[in-house]
């Protein structure tokens, strides 16, 4: 049983116009096996939260903490965080020209586990996960994300989630740009990862659509850089009906 605890997190970025605060005191705790949905309008800081957890250098933590079972995540490098069991499925996965998917996956697995995976079992694992995600076998020999369609990129992110077996996964708008078939396939992959391990999931999304396939235990409404409301799955249904207007207006009034 692990816990990822975010407390009073303030994060800013440098822009041409100077320092811009994005997160203004985020508190969030996720335990193993739980699925938390973070929902909010554009510009509310959802993706900033995702990238800050992963350690992207663009985001500057001004105060607050992120702890994984008490360990200071903010003191870790990007790769140390991944090896500690954190995973970020990116909204815009990056192309790595000249590096094949199979080489990349093996290199990542070796880095995470500390030893190279046994060839036979590994090849089988990769093949099975790819089949489950309806990925053609030629995928393994393509260069990472190069020329991938939007849906292929997202499946490739979930493939990594299944193979690298993190303790906590942050899914940053994994549903964006997916048609309903691709959304189902990707959601099944996340659910398989949850079943096969005690994965904790932080599911960041703009829409409630993906929550039909990945059931959240908790829903956090994110507005203007902080959590505006929290609740169970029923909160998502309410958002479906009412949208974010109520929160945005309240945030504007209090600003």
């Amino acid at each position: 049983m692990s816990t990822l605890a975010i407390s009073d997190l303030h994060v800013s970025i440098e822009t041409d116009q100077g320092t811009k605060p994005i997160l203004r005191g985020v508190d969030l705790a996720i335990s193993s096996g739980e699925t938390h949905a973070v929902m909010g309008p554009n510009g509310s800081g959802k993706s900033t939260l995702a990238y800050t957890i992963a350690g992207h250098p663009r985001y500057k933590v001004d105060s607050g903490s992120i702890r994984l079972d008490g360990q200071d995540v903010l003191a870790m490098t990007v790769d140390e965080r991944a090896r500690a069991g954190l995973f970020l499925a990116m909204q815009y996965p990056v192309e790595i020209p000249g590096v094949t998917v199979s080489n990349f996956l093996r290199t990542a697995k070796t880095a995470i586990d500390g030893t190279a995976p046994a060839i036979r079992g590994w090849v089988k694992d990769v093949r099975q996960s790819m089949e489950a995600l309806r990925m053609d076998s030629t995928f393994a020999e393509r260069n990472v994300n190069e020329g991938f369609s939007g849906g292929e990129k997202k499946r490739h992110e979930i493939l990594q989630l299944e193979l690298l077996k993190p303790r906590f996964a942050v899914l940053d708008e994994t549903d964006s740009g997916l048609d309903v078939d691709a959304l189902k396939i990707v959601s099944e992959g996340v659910n398989r990862a949850k079943e096969s391990s005690d994965l904790g999931v932080l599911l960041i999304t703009h829409y409630t659509r993906i929550l039909r396939y990945i059931k959240p235990d908790f829903v956090h409404v994110f507005v203007a850089g902080r959590v505006a409301e929290e609740g169970g799955p029923e909160l998502a249904d309410r958002l479906e009906d009412e949208g974010y207007d109520r929160y945005v207006a309240a945030a504007a009034a209090s600003a």
């Binding site: 992963a54 350690g55 992207h56 250098p57 490098t77 990007v78 790769d79 965080r81 991944a82 090896r83 995973f87 970020l88 990116m90 996965p93 990056v94 192309e95 790595i96 020209p97 000249g98 590096v99 080489n103 990349f104 290199t107 990542a108 880095a111 995470i112 260069n143 990472v144 990594q160 690298l164």
Partner: peptide, 30 residues
């Protein structure tokens, strides 16, 4: 961004850098 992506998968910076250089040149070799 390439380095970040690779590091976010647990790959240490030095190995990630090599992977990127290798890939950069290999895309011609391929």
């Amino acid at each position: 961004e390439q380095l970040f992506y690779l590091q976010a998968r647990g790959i240490p910076e030095e190995i990630a850098r090599r992977l990127v250089v290798r890939g950069f040149l290999s895309s011609i070799v391929q």
